[in-house]
Design a protein around this nucleic acid. Structure first.
Length: 714
DNA sequence: GAAGGGTGTCTTTTT
DNA sequence: GACACCCTTC
């Protein structure tokens, strides 16, 4: 037992061994919170608690997987019996086990955000609402309601709200129920309702789970909190950091941290403030910044480490200059023996990755972009999945719509609308309606035979699930439906990628197949796995690459060298957040970014930036830079030589305006008769139409036609 | 039913 | 600038 505790500091030890039945561990960035969680489980095990008496909840599959591995290392053989999973994963598990009490069909399916959008779009269209009704915004509102635990019926009787939203919400609920579909918010809401309506179940699980542990508690939403509160019968151990709450926009309630304190009056709070990650400089700077937030539980990180380097703030002329600087610094680091994988470029929005990508490629630096489209979200994969889903559950309207005419098989708009009408009329699924439409001869001969063939195709596949393996089934789908041929016909680069993705998908299927038996059950397991764990975006190759990602996805990670770019007012903090009064959350996001760095932090911003392909606009430095006390910062400015067309940046052809504009380099100082001295920020066009953007010291920024402006170089 | 043109949008993201 | 979406046209 002493072994188990010997690697912990005093506060970690206190958290791990406490007897209190309600514990809140306020764990700062890099203070070893996962360590505390797994040691807590191990310690309780040593006190005689059985593995099945734990429930450990995380937000991401990655976090759950890491916990499993680390527990397995600490207590070989125990991890497999502990319920460790994401909230959604555990909710799914419960709903599958108690599907009847949850009022679901046994073969219900999970739909992702994209499927949900498509369904709602269809409902909006069919409801023939006024044209200013935006499906995406309705979707957002529906999910928001669900996150708060509000059903359409309840809202209808209690609230004055947009009637359109309520109408669609109601129809959407009916459609999902009829089709056996459950969206992500529904997983949580349904399982909460399952408990609320079945006190015997609650009693059972309360008794079973002697210890409930929750990671990243600051990210829980209302439903998740209510759910936790309901099934906690014995010990609740939560770990969180209010300063790292960055998901309020998707329903996370930072207040849950204080609600917990009043709901569990016997609670104990333990603060982990010793940081084992960053240098003192980085920590002090981060502490100083986060102090600008009013709403905090309060916490001050410290470390025993060295002071470390100052934080470099680089002021670039424009986004290209910013990228040039960053890549140059990365090259410098690499030449000093730093590995690519220890370096990260973080940004507020995905669009900013582009400038860096180009330069990384042209400089031959391996890089990896996190985020973006996940493997199972790719259209070609979703097509195959839709066939599998429809075979597994014919009432799945979402999948039906996706593939009924893909590849095209003569079931066009006309035929589909006949099916849809009948389905709506009789409140049956599209699949059932299709069968009826054929039987009742509601279609012309040609369309009818197409539809009959489609039904036959799916029925043949259904028969296969009885006799054949899952991978054979999937193989046939790809061949017999013509999906493969559809992509092969198109010889574009994208189509080749798609075929490769499908092949990769088949490999995954085979792998899964070999680990399981009975086809029908395998399909179900596979589909749920795919929905709940969309997988990283394809490439699993463990290359030594520089990491590019948004600040959001960087949470929970650490890197020796971190570059945070685009630190400009309107970009970070983002304009929408400024307007929505969400500045504190933006500041927390910045805090998360800063505390990712172990050795050295670089912050960059550009004076001018081209966004949305439009005109470059002048950018003001982010207020967050100002908030860092100056003793931790060293400022650098762009030097003109950065703009020389060096190896660092290969000009795109369109910037090689041959005649006029080429006389001016970006960043060059010029003189104008009327406006005085200024500096060139950007240029566009060629020949007579060439224009340059000049930022005049006295007059501000202007676009001038080179042919008329008579600029002199200085 | 496919292909081409015009239009509007453009935070963050896991499940 | 890029992508998704809608409409028109063949």
């Amino acid at each position: 037992m002493t072994d188990l505790l010997s690697s912990l500091n005093e506060y970690q030890k206190q958290a791990v061994t406490t007897d209190n039945s309600a514990v809140l561990v306020l764990a700062g960035a890099g203070s070893g919170k996962t360590r505390v969680l797994i040691h807590r489980i191990a310690w309780c095990c040593q006190q005689g608690v059985m593995p099945h008496q734990f429930l450990a909840l995380t937000f991401t599959n990655k976090a759950a997987a890491e916990m499993k591995v680390r527990i397995e290392n600490l207590l070989p053989g125990f991890a497999s019996n502990i319920w460790i999973g994401t909230f959604h994963g555990i909710a799914y598990r419960l709903l599958k086990m108690h599907w009847k009490q949850a009022n679901l069909s046994q073969n219900f399916q999970i739909i992702d955000t994209d499927d949900q959008t498509q369904l709602i779009k269809r409902l909006v269209k069919e409801a023939k609402l006024s044209d200013d009704t935006d499906a995406k915004s309705i979707q957002w509102q529906i999910n928001h309601y669900k996150d708060e635990g509000l059903r359409a019926d309840y809202i209808e009787s209690g609230f004055q709200d947009d009637p359109n939203v309520l109408l669609i919400y109601k129809r959407y609920e009916q459609l999902c129920q009829r089709s056996g579909l459950v969206d992500f918010a529904e997983l949580l809401l349904r399982s909460l309702e399952l408990f609320r309506q079945n006190p015997d179940l609650v009693a059972h699980y309360q008794d079973r789970f002697q210890h409930i542990l929750v990671d990243e508690f600051q990210d829980t939403n209302s439903i998740q909190y209510a759910w936790i509160k309901l099934i906690t019968g014995n010990n609740l151990f939560i770990v969180g950091d209010d300063d790292q709450s960055i998901y309020s926009w998707r329903g996370a309630k930072i207040e849950n941290l204080t609600t917990f304190q009043s709901d569990f009056p016997q609670h104990e709070i333990i603060r982990l403030e010793q940081n084992y990650r960053s240098t003192n400089t980085i920590l002090s700077a981060a502490n100083a910044v986060i102090k600008f937030n009013q709403q905090r539980l309060g916490k001050d990180l410290w470390c025993e480490g060295a002071e470390g380097d100052l934080i470099t703030v680089f002021k670039a002329m424009n986004e290209k200059d910013e990228a040039i600087y960053t890549i140059k610094e990365i090259k410098k680091l690499c030449s000093h023996g730093v590995s690519n994988r220890d370096i990260a470029i973080l940004y507020r929005s995905n669009a900013l990755s582009r400038n860096f990508e180009e330069l990384l490629v042209s400089n031959g630096i391996a890089y990896r972009i996190y985020g973006g489209l996940r493997f199972f979200e790719r259209a070609e994969i979703k097509d195959v999945l839709a066939y599998l889903k429809l075979i597994h559950n014919s009432d799945d309207d979402s999948s039906y719509i996706r593939i009924v005419n893909k590849p095209t098989r003569g079931i066009g708009q006309k035929a589909q609308s006949v099916v849809h009408e009948l389905a709506n009329e009789q409140s049956i699924s599209l699949w059932e309606a299709s069968v009826k439409v054929c039987e009742q001869g509601l279609l012309k001969a040609k369309a009818k035979s197409s539809l009959v063939n489609f039904i036959q195709l799916i029925n043949d596949f259904k028969a296969m699930t009885e006799s054949d393996s899952f991978s054979n089934l999937t193989n046939s789908i790809i061949e017999k439906t013509g999906l493969q041929a559809m992509h092969e016909k198109e010889h574009s680069e994208k189509a080749i990628m798609r075929i490769e993705n499908i092949k990769e998908f088949l490999v995954a299927v085979k792998q899964f197949d070999s680990e399981h038996q009975q086809t029908d059950a395998v399909v179900e397991d596979f589909l749920s796995k795919v929905s709940l764990d969309a997988g990283v975006n394809g490439e699993t190759s463990e290359q030594d690459s520089v990491n590019l990602m948004t600040l959001h996805s960087a949470k929970g990670l650490e890197f020796s060298y971190v570059f945070i770019c685009g630190l400009e007012q309107g970009l970070f903090p983002h304009i929408n957040s400024i307007m929505d009064n969400q500045l504190e959350e933006e500041r927390r996001l910045f805090y998360v970014g800063m505390t990712r760095a172990k050795e050295k932090l670089h912050l960059t911003h550009a004076c001018s930036r081209q966004r949305f392909g439009g005109r470059p606009t002048l950018q003001k430095a982010s207020q967050f830079i100002e908030e860092i006390p100056s003793q931790y910062v060293i400022s650098e400015k762009s030097h003109q030589q950065h703009f020389a067309r060096t190896q660092y940046y290969e000009q795109k052809p369109k910037y090689k305006s041959i005649k006029s504009a080429s006389a001016f380099e970006l960043g060059q100082r010029v003189l104008h008769k009327k406006f005085g001295e200024g500096i060139i920020l950007d240029h566009e066009g060629e020949g007579d139409r060439a224009r340059v953007q000049v930022h005049f010291d006295a007059e501000g920024s202007k676009w001038l036609a080179v042919a008329y402006a008579k600029l002199e170089t200085l």
